[in-house]
Amino acid sequence: MTNQTSTIKERVMEAYQFRHATKMYDANKKIADNDFKFILEAGRLSPSSLGSEPWKFLVVQSPELRNKLMEVAPGAVEKLKSASHFVILLARKNVRYDSDYLFSQMKDVQQMPETVVTEVSGHYKRFQEQKQILDNERTLFDWASKQTYIALGNMLTAAALLGIDSTPMEGFNQEKLDALLEEEGLLENGQFGASVLAAFGYRKEDPKRGKTRRNIEEVAQWV
């Protein structure tokens, strides 16, 4: 193992040990613009099923909108008050194998030739049928929502590598939050729904104890 590889491993492990679900943020400390762009890039470059990228990251810095969010996201009130940056990860609805969005993703983003698009679309159809993703609107949304958690995880790690704290949250009323965001014109006429929340900033105080996890023998099994 080279010294460079060893250093990378140490840095990553230090970041994981550093990161915790921050309860209170220092409202006076703000994340530098280039650092937060790095965090967003970690989300944007994340993998997703079928390369579908069924997400959008709403960075909520408006004090007015943050106040409104407190009414529909009780689990995020303290973070909305003090976190430097607050993100709502949206999941795209109706990402079917035959949707305009997925065809555009293949042709315009992944730049597949027309013949390949037709073939791949058939593979996507079989995959989504086998996974029962096409059963109803909820199963489609849940599938897309799962992808946002991959992006979320990478954003949390990217932040930790920079010494930036974070808190992932699900403490919100889905129906009311979606209604609020729709009213604000942020869901693109119902094409998205809220998936998960995340706050970023700098801790007001250190956690009272270190990282606690089950040991590796309990969570990893070699077969």
Rank of each mutant, 00 (worst) to 15 (best):
A159G: 04
L65T: 07
E114A: 15
R209H: 04
I164P: 00
P47N: 10
S48D: 05
M106E: 05
L45W: 08
L58E: 02
F200S: 02
G190H: 11
L65V: 08
E175Q: 15
I39T: 00
M1E: 12
P47V: 09
E182K: 12
I133D: 01
T115A: 15
A144W: 00
I88V: 10
L69T: 01
V117P: 03
N189E: 14
E218W: 09
G190Y: 11
F172C: 05
L161Q: 09
E41Y: 05
V109H: 12
K204S: 12
F141K: 07
A27V: 12
Q147W: 01
K146Y: 09
A179I: 10
F38L: 12
E205A: 13
E119C: 11
F86S: 02
N173I: 09
T2I: 12
R209V: 00
G210E: 00
G210P: 00
G201W: 00
F86D: 02
V117W: 06
L58N: 03
N173A: 11
R209S: 00
V120I: 13
K204V: 06
R19Y: 01
F192I: 08
Q132N: 14
V196R: 04
F18D: 02
E183L: 11
T212K: 01
Y202G: 08
F38Y: 11
V223D: 10
S104P: 04
N28R: 12
T22C: 07
V60N: 02
P63M: 08
E53A: 06
A151M: 03
T139D: 11
E41W: 04
D26R: 08
E184I: 10
N154D: 08
R214D: 04
V116K: 13
K93G: 01
G185Q: 11
Q221H: 15
L89A: 04
L50W: 03
V12A: 12
L80C: 04
K211A: 06
V72N: 02
S121P: 06
L58T: 03
V223P: 06
G171N: 08
R126S: 15
D35W: 04
E205T: 12
L50I: 08
V120T: 12
L45F: 09
S46Q: 06
G171L: 08
L177Q: 05
A91V: 04
S6L: 14
F192T: 02
L180D: 02
R203L: 07
L69W: 01
K204P: 04
A194N: 06
T115S: 14
E218C: 11
T7N: 14
A32C: 11
S82T: 13
L140T: 03
V72C: 05
E137W: 06
F86H: 01
G210Y: 00
A42D: 04
R138E: 15
Y149V: 05
